[in-house]
Structure formats: structure tokens, C-alpha cells
């Protein structure tokens, strides 16, 4: 593989990896505050994809939109993905997890509820939107924006990396610099003490879900733009992003980003060197190897307690 080939592959990997990173944050935030593996997060992601399709179909893009039109459609899609993702995540916490917390249900029950909610949501989507893939309405001509060291970067690739970067920085600021962020960190560290200090745990948990849902929804929209939207689209990216969160150290926001990018890049190089059929073999071999030597993940655990 020549140097310019490697650069091409690296770009592919970073694009995919930045999507994984955004989804992984949803897993890691919720794990941080509830020690819950929210497997239904992959369906929040899926909902974001459908949100984009619905909004763009309603506002029916002009044929071959360009310029300002394109910008408006992209923003509309991002907003719709975020809203639907946030709403589903909010509803999920309210309807599925909060009653369990009230009753102090065992961890296992949370996990089974998460899996059940995931099945419920994607089958519901299949029923509502049909069990076949849907193309994201065209928002722009996906041409090359610029060429970087011989690798052409397309509009979609730039959009994905750009949007991911903005969201990752925003989440980092929210968690580390805002009142909600100190709430999240306080609940993650010790919910009882946090409650005694006047933190409204229910509110913090609910907002954490919404924050993760907004990100997951936008990721779903971006993923759907790059591929297509389907009721089962959440499964593989969801599992991979969960693995990315664990790889980076679950509960740790920056770890999730690092894990996501790393998995994306490893996948891309696996595909290049062997083939697409080996994609997950390569990626998950790296996961197992890393966890063997660093069981708490690359950046350990900073936000939550030890798993």
C-alpha cells in the first residue's frame, strides 16, 4: 500500500470513526450516570435517520439543489435528526427506565428492558416506514470539495467530520464547563451524595438521555446520508459504537471519541488490506487486544465508577 493509498484509507476511516464517536458518546454518558448499557441507543440513532428522511420529504427538496438551498436542507436534516433522536431518548428514559429506577430494579432488568425497547423500536419503525431501505433525499451534489495530499474529500465526508467535530467539542464543553455538566459528573460519581447536595437526579438523568439522543439522532441522519435509511440500520453501528465506548473506557467522553475514531480507522484498513468480509474481524481483534492489556479501556474511567 503506497503512502497516498494509506491517506485515502485514513480519510475513509476517520469519516466512519467520527460517526462511531458521536454515537459512542450516547452510550458512555448514560453509562456514566446510570451504569446502564442502553442498547436501545442504536434505535435512537435509527430514529434520527428517519427524522431526516421525513423532514426532507415533507419539505421536498428542489431537484438538484445547490448553494444556500443545500445549506438549508442540510441544517433541516440535522435538526430533524436531532429532534427525533432527542424525543425518542427522552421518551425511552421516561417510559422504560424511570419506572425501574423508582422500584430499585436489579441491573439485569435494566439490561433486558434496554434490549426489549430496542426490539420494540426497530420493529415499530419497520411497521411504520416499511421493511426496506429508503434513500435520503438529495440535498446537494456530492462532489469533491478539496483535495488533501492527493485524496479527494467529498461534501458528505466533510459534512460528517465537520458536524461530528462541532458536536464533540460542544459535548466536551457541556460536560466540563456547565452546570448540567457538573450535575452529570456529580451523579456519575455518587448519586446519593449528589442528591444530598441538591442535585435533581431525575432531571440530570433525563437531560443526559436527551443530550445523548440529540447526538445519536444527528449521527443517524449523517449515516443515512452516506448510506441509506432502514429500520435495522442501528444494529451494526450501534454495536460497534458501544464497543468503541468500551475501548476508550466507558463513562469517559474523550475516551469514546478516541475509541470511535480508532475503530473506524482499523475497520477501513482491514477492508483495504483484506476485504469487507473481514471488517469486524480486524476491528474487534483490536478491541480484544486492547482490553486484555487495559481492561478499563484506553483512557480508563474518569466520569463514572468502576464497572
Amino acid at each position: 500500500m503506497s503512502l497516498s493509498d494509506s491517506w485515502d484509507v485514513l480519510v475513509l476511516g476517520l469519516v466512519l470513526g467520527s460517526l462511531y464517536a458521536v454515537i459512542a458518546i450516547g452510550y458512555t454518558l448514560v453509562y456514566g450516570v446510570l451504569q446502564l448499557l442502553n442498547f436501545a441507543h442504536s434505535e435512537v440513532f435509527m430514529a434520527g435517520g428517519f427524522g431526516g428522511v421525513i423532514a426532507l420529504t415533507i419539505f421536498e427538496p428542489a431537484v438538484d439543489p445547490s448553494g444556500m438551498q443545500s445549506v438549508v436542507y442540510v441544517l433541516l436534516g440535522i435538526a430533524a435528526g436531532a429532534v427525533l433522536g432527542g424525543v425518542i431518548a427522552f421518551g425511552l428514559e421516561k417510559a422504560a427506565y424511570r419506572p425501574l429506577r423508582r422500584r430499585n430494579a436489579p441491573r439485569l432488568v435494566f439490561l433486558i428492558t434496554a434490549i426489549g425497547a430496542s426490539f420494540f423500536l426497530y420493529n415499530l419503525a419497520g411497521k411504520l416506514f416499511g421493511r426496506y431501505p429508503i434513500a435520503m433525499p438529495s440535498m446537494y451534489e456530492n462532489k469533491t470539495v478539496f483535495t488533501l495530499f492527493g485524496t479527494s474529500v467529498s461534501v458528505t465526508q466533510l459534512l460528517i467530520v465537520g458536524a461530528a467535530l462541532v458536536m464533540l467539542v460542544a459535548v466536551d464543553v457541556i460536560v466540563n464547563r456547565t452546570k448540567l455538566g457538573s450535575g452529570i459528573r456529580a451523579v456519575a460519581q455518587d448519586p446519593e451524595v449528589a442528591a444530598l447536595m441538591g442535585v435533581d437526579i431525575d432531571k440530570v438523568v433525563s437531560r443526559t438521555f436527551v443530550l445523548g439522543g440529540l447526538l445519536g439522532g444527528v449521527a443517524g441522519f449523517l449515516f443515512g446520508t452516506n448510506l441509506q435509511v432502514e429500520y435495522t440500520m442501528g444494529f451494526l453501528p450501534g454495536i460497534t459504537a458501544f464497543a468503541a465506548a468500551v475501548l476508550g473506557g466507558i463513562g469517559n467522553v474523550r475516551g469514546a471519541v478516541l475509541g470511535g475514531l480508532l475503530l473506524g480507522v482499523v475497520e477501513a484498513f482491514t477492508v483495504e488490506i483484506w476485504s469487507d468480509a473481514w471488517r469486524y474481524v480486524g476491528a474487534f481483534a483490536v478491541l480484544v487486544l486492547v482490553l486484555m492489556f487495559r481492561p478499563t479501556g484506553l483512557l480508563g474511567e474518569r466520569v463514572g465508577r468502576t464497572a
Binding site: L12, V15, L16, T240, A268, S275, D276, R279
Partner: peptide
């Protein structure tokens, strides 16, 4: 001959190949 599973998450790599 190449194999690309139908549920792959990104066709960028296959297109490159």
C-alpha cells in the same frame, strides 16, 4: 473476486478497491 457483506456500514472501501 471480492466479498462485501450486504449489511456493510460503508461502501467507500469497496468502491476504492
Amino acid at each position: 473476486r471480492e466479498s462485501v457483506p450486504a449489511d456493510t456500514v460503508d461502501y467507500g472501501g469497496a468502491a476504492r478497491t
